[in-house]
């Protein structure tokens, strides 16, 4: 991640109602955050709405951002992801078996992109130097985490996608997360986002 100090400072200013700082935050982060929302939602219109909601929320809640305990980009990503997951959750179309490809409206070519989730996970890992930790996971664990994280898939959606029993997927996700945490802790890479 790029130097987070200017972003941190701008968020502090946003908390005090500084509109110029707010615009700077938007312009420096929106493309990235839009990409994240688009991956999860698979639809431009829905992703635009989520981005809008996220930034309105940033304007009102920048004061709750705690520079001491989290990176500014991580904080913003969490807001966008949570809003996107709310939408995914409430959209009946997406429920259980149906996939975002089957939705109306503008669509992404997710069928082609979906296998890319795993590649993204490893690319993200490269940036983090935690590649070793992810590689140490079983392939099924790694794949389940990638589908859930990048595409906002639920356990049942991952199960449908991988054509695996739901119970197995739940266990893969749980063990995958546990092992990732353990590995990050032992290699001391958990906090390597710039501090």
């Amino acid at each position: 991640m790029a130097d987070s100090a200017p972003l941190q400072q701008d968020l502090a200013r946003v908390a005090l109602g500084d509109r110029a700082a707010f615009e700077r935050v938007y312009h420096s982060t929106s493309a990235h955050l839009f990409g994240v929302a688009l991956r999860i939602l698979g639809r431009r219109d829905a992703a635009e709405d989520v981005l809008q909601e996220a930034f309105v929320s940033v304007w009102h809640h920048a004061g709750s951002y705690q520079a001491a305990s989290s990176q500014p980009m991580t904080w913003l990503i969490s807001i966008v992801r949570n809003k996107a997951l709310d939408v995914v959750r409430s959209a009946a179309v997406r429920h259980e078996t149906s996939m975002p490809e089957s939705k109306d409206g503008e669509e992404l070519e997710l069928a082609d992109e979906r296998p890319g989730a795993l590649a993204l996970l490893m690319a993200g890992a490269e940036a983090l130097a935690i590649r070793g930790c992810l590689e140490a996971l079983d392939a099924s664990h790694r794949q389940s985490l990638a589908l859930a994280y990048y595409h906002g898939m639920s356990h049942s959606e991952v199960a449908a996608h991988l054509q695996a029993p739901l119970g197995s997927v739940k266990a893969w996700v749980r063990r995958g997360l546990e092992r990732l945490k353990k590995c990050l802790e032992t290699t001391g890479q958990a906090n390597l986002t710039g501090r």
């Binding site: 615009e23 839009f34 993204l120 690319a123």
Partner: peptide
């Protein structure tokens, strides 16, 4: 956990949102 997983989002290719969002 946000600190652990959040950085994985770095790998997602940026897509410029349309001006109407801002």
């Amino acid at each position: 956990w946000e600190e652990r997983l959040g950085p994985l989002a770095v790998a997602v290719p940026p897509v410029a949102p349309p001006a109407r969002v801002w």
